[in-house]
Design a protein around this nucleic acid. Structure first.
Length: 496
RNA sequence: GCCGCUAUGGUGUAAGUGGUUAACACGCCGCCCUCUCAAGGCGGAGAGUACGGGUUCGAGUCCCGUUAGCGGUACCA
């Protein structure tokens, strides 16, 4: 008996890949990799109306970006419906399920909740078809009468299973209705399909969101009815929105979509790292964990039971998503191997329209140095094309606050061009020479070096903050430095 | 309505089988560095563990109740 771990991620393509789904996929993937098992991707597209090819592509893209490679699949649940129907029919033949000839009620998606409550209040009566003799049912079906197939849930007793995260679970059979396996139009329903597919795919561990916890009892019933061993279940705490409210695709939209993180400058490994920390901890103080470390340390026993708040803030421009996600990303940007970061920054500059072919040819060394200089204070790849713009383009804005603070001294109107001249006539354009020239010049002019330094930073980059001035100068080079210094003299504000 | 799950600073998490002043990270605030900070270094505030009972010499940890949030309760997935 081999006990190879086989797990699956089974999204339904009714929406894009959101953080909750991504986290479920990640935990399955980590579990599979950790145990040298198999990770299967199965698209649950049985809800034809709501599923779409575009969403399938979106999910595939998202997983690819996250680096969650699957070993088998993608399989499409819709291609297995015959098997689902056959399984249900077998259960009927064995007396474990029955045909229900009650006419289908028209349900409006919007009123289901109320309907559930109404029906519960009214009290449930026993389904009269539950005990209909098999031959009679078969004959009626043969005659073309429409019927749904329902599982016979025991009337007395308790269902139990041991969840690897939530522990022992119990539910009275009396609380479980005879669930519909096959609709009267022949369409197999979720609980049946998952179980049949999980059986045929040999799934050993079902790792999924906690929203499936209570319904797991129904699935256990199905495994038992089919006479096959029940897999292990591990339910993951849900990810919720700030204020502990539920995450809704409709209300929260893009902030919860994985592609948003790709498009707004996240490093895949960093996002994976952040996601792993949502509802799980390695049990140590270490929070920055590489993919390899995550695989090594991952264990379902470290999964938390309480739902985790994904602390995004859509109204804040700079801190638009969870601050910790941004921090983790910044950590990756500043410490990842430079040769891995450079291509990512290239991609971002291309998207921002700031890319020049020389950066990957004659100026590749310069480009790498520039990225290395800037990375220390950036949190996303987008910052390279945003805050980093003055380093890659001559067209950039001067931050009014920076101009006001650093270019307000009227003496700068003369000093900036003066400094520009000094630097243009330097023999060697090195850090030491430039610094000596600037300090010498400020001494001659009787002003503090700081005045010139801060003014120069703003003159050169338009910004209030940034790397050390001499690093900026060296990266920009003599030509750009000289012209920008001179040009900025015009910005020196005339005090009123 | 009924059933279930959960509850540690603003957020994410620690605190083996109950045992000293509840720890770490993010964020926030301050100081330092000094040429700036959105970088780096240092420090600080912030929870007495949802609330109320109980068990115990001792409870964040066990039990009961309440509350809140979430999930389920569909011929949705």
């Amino acid at each position: 008996m081999t006990d190879t771990v086989r797990v699956r991620f089974a999204p339904s393509p009714t929406g894009y890949l959101h953080v909750g789904g991504a986290r479920t996929a990640l935990f399955n993937w980590l579990f599979a990799r950790k145990h040298k098992g198999v990770f299967i991707l199965r698209i649950e597209d049985t809800d034809v109306q709501r599923s779409s090819e575009a969403m399938v592509q979106g999910i595939l893209e998202g997983m690819h970006w996250l680096g969650l490679d699957h070993d088998e699949g993608p399989f499409f649940q819709s291609s297995f419906v015959d098997r689902h129907r056959a399984a249900a029919r077998r259960l009927v033949e064995e007396g474990k399920a029955y045909y229900d000839f009650t006419p289908k009620e028209a349900t409006d998606d919007r009123t289901v909740k109320e309907k559930i409550i109404d029906r519960a209040r009214a009290g449930r009566e026993k389904n009269p078809y539950r005990s209909l003799p098999l031959e009679e049912s078969l004959a009626r079906v043969e005659a073309g009468e429409a019927a749904a197939i329902r599982l016979k849930v025991p009337e007395e007793g308790t269902s139990r299973f041991d969840d690897m995260v939530y522990g022992p679970q119990e539910r009275d059979y009396s609380d479980i209705e005879d669930l519909v396996l096959i609709r009267s139009d022949g369409h197999p329903l979720y609980n049946l399909s998952v179980v049949v597919d999980d059986i045929t795919m040999g799934i050993t561990h079902v790792i999924r969101g906690q929203d499936h916890l209570t319904n797991t009892h129904k699935q256990v019933l199905l495994y038992e009815a089919m006479g096959v061993p029940v897999p292990r279940f591990a339910h993951l705490p849900l990810i919720i929105a700030p204020g502990r409210e539920k995450l809704s695709k409709r209300k929260h939209g893009e902030v919860v979509s994985v592609t948003t993180y790709r498009d707004r400058g996240f490093v895949p490994d960093a996002f994976v790292n952040f996601l792993a920390l949502l509802g799980w901890s390695a049990g140590s103080d270490q929070e920055i964990l590489s993919r390899e470390e995550l695989i090594e340390k991952f264990d379902l026993s470290g999964v938390n039971k309480a739902s985790a708040v994904f602390n995004f803030n859509e109204s804040n421009q700079s801190d638009w998503t969870d601050p910790k996600a941004l921090w983790v990303n910044g950590e990756y940007i500043k410490s990842m191997p430079l040769d891995e970061l450079v291509p990512m920054v290239s991609g971002q500059l291309k998207r921002a329209g700031l890319w020049r072919e020389e950066y990957s040819a004659g100026q590749s060394e310069w480009f790498a140095r520039a990225v290395d200089l800037l990375r220390a204070r950036y949190r996303t790849l987008d910052d390279f094309g945003g805050y980093g713009r003055p380093y890659f383009s001559d067209e950039f804005e001067y931050d009014p606050a920076a101009v006001k603070k650093n270019l307000k001294d009227e003496r700068l109107r003369e000093l900036l061009p003066g400094l520009s001249d000094r630097l243009s006539s330097l023999d060697r354009f090195t850090h030491e020479e430039v610094e000596a020239a600037l300090r010498g010049y400020s001494e001659e002019q009787g002003v503090k070096a700081g005045l010139l330094i801060n003014a120069a930073r703003t003159a050169l980059t338009g910004q209030l903050v940034g790397p050390g001035l001499f690093d900026i100068v060296l990266i920009l080079g003599r030509e750009r430095t000289v012209t920008r210094l001179r040009r900025a003299a015009d910005l020196v504000s005339a005090r009123e």
